[in-house]
Design a protein around this nucleic acid. Structure first.
Lengths: 214, 214
DNA sequence: AAGCAACCATACCGTCCGGTCGGTTACCGG
DNA sequence: CCGGTAACCGACCGGACGGTATGGTTGCTT
């Protein structure tokens, strides 16, 4: 038994989560029935209710799973970028470029973001899940914010700017870009928008003016 | 009988659409039942099916209504901006600032965008409605694109840029900003992000370098 | 090999939801 | 005042959905 496939139960649970995610991202959570998920995975009610307390529990598990995968991916990209560039600005640029390359490689538009989906249907979830989603988005932005903090502590921007604003901007651009990308069927729209954001950064720090200690 | 209240039927229909919109924006379309809408408006099944063929028809009507209102608002803002500024860059900046002021005036986060909601639950709608939504988003972007075209035909940007990219960028920023704004409960996030976009524009056209005819 | 838990299949239940339909009231031209 | 139509009501239906109960099967441990 290979370690990667874990136990049988974990594999079916993962399969359910994966197919549920694609269905939810295409039709929405409420419009996705349990039977539909089970038909797609080839299992039954018994299996589902063995792994999840109910549909609400599935929603929470979906968010948690997405959160982990998302965090893991970005930590990998950040590590790679910082290994290659000592300068914080270069590292951030590299991070964005790697991200764009990942999207550009896909021929179809990305299926969407679970956080955005959950936010949109948020009214049917309880407060703790909504808080968890907001926290996930904040952590994502905070990851960028840390990078921009490093950049701002070294270089003087050509316009007064806060790291948090830049972090929220790239997250907003990606989330909004995903919506347009899906609606248009344009697989490369998000990458194009990320490039625009890089443009903004390169104009903000065009001359790499070193910050003067007060 | 005042002209503004139109016929009785039109008023109840409008009331249904308005309450349906708020419900849909907070819980999603599939999770919003007809009974819920009717309870909120104080009318009944009979009234609903007199005005709409079914729930799918309601969805289409919601999109169409939002589309009209949205277009009307922006045409008003554009007209106001162009009346005040002959220069296309100044007019565009004014347009964005007016938009920010509108958002800033609200104390609660905007309820969301029907286009984004519909895109997110798109899998449950038919192709014609999905196309209609994509078209609505494109028209919105095209409205901005026209303005940026005017700017680019007069001024040389400090980085090579297409009007379409800028147009898609502000739309993406607003859509993404709305998601973050709702999830965080931060009413001013969208306006802050619009200001970032204005920053980008002001850096792109900082010196107002006039375009040289080739 | 026995036993025990984890895992999964199936039949079934109560409820809610979209939709239908026969009927009633409000309005309006003639 | 009358006829007709737009507007509206509310009981009802069939089906789908989330959830449960129960029994069977697999696989790990000792």
């Amino acid at each position: 038994m290979v370690a990667s496939m874990a136990t049988k139960g974990e594999r079916t649970r993962e399969k359910m989560l994966a197919t549920a995610e694609t269905l939810v991202l295409s039709k929405g959570f409420a419009a996705t029935s349990l039977d539909e998920i089970l038909r797609a995975t080839g299992s039954t009610k018994g299996a589902f209710f063995h792994h999840f307390k109910g549909k609400a529990d599935l929603a929470q598990a979906l968010v948690e799973r997405y959160r982990r995968n998302h965090a893991k991916l970005f930590e990998r990209l950040v590590a790679e970028a910082e290994a290659k560039h000592a300068d914080p600005l270069d590292a951030t640029m590299h991070l964005l470029k790697r991200f764009e390359a990942l999207i550009q490689a896909q021929s179809k538009p990305l299926p969407g973001c679970v956080f955005a989906a959950a936010t949109h249907e948020g009214g049917q979830f309880d407060t703790t899940l909504r808080d968890r989603i907001a926290d996930s988005l904040r952590r994502w932005a905070a990851l960028y914010e840390g990078k921009f903090d490093a950049v701002l502590s070294r270089y003087e921007p050509s316009l007064p700017i806060a790291a948090k604003e830049l972090a929220e901007m790239i997250v907003a651009i990606i989330e909004g870009g995903l919506i347009l990308s899906r609606s248009y069927g344009d697989a490369h729209l998000v990458a194009r928008q990320s490039r625009q954001f890089r443009n903004y950064l390169s104009l903000l720090f065009a001359d790499r003016q070193p910050r003067i200690a007060a």
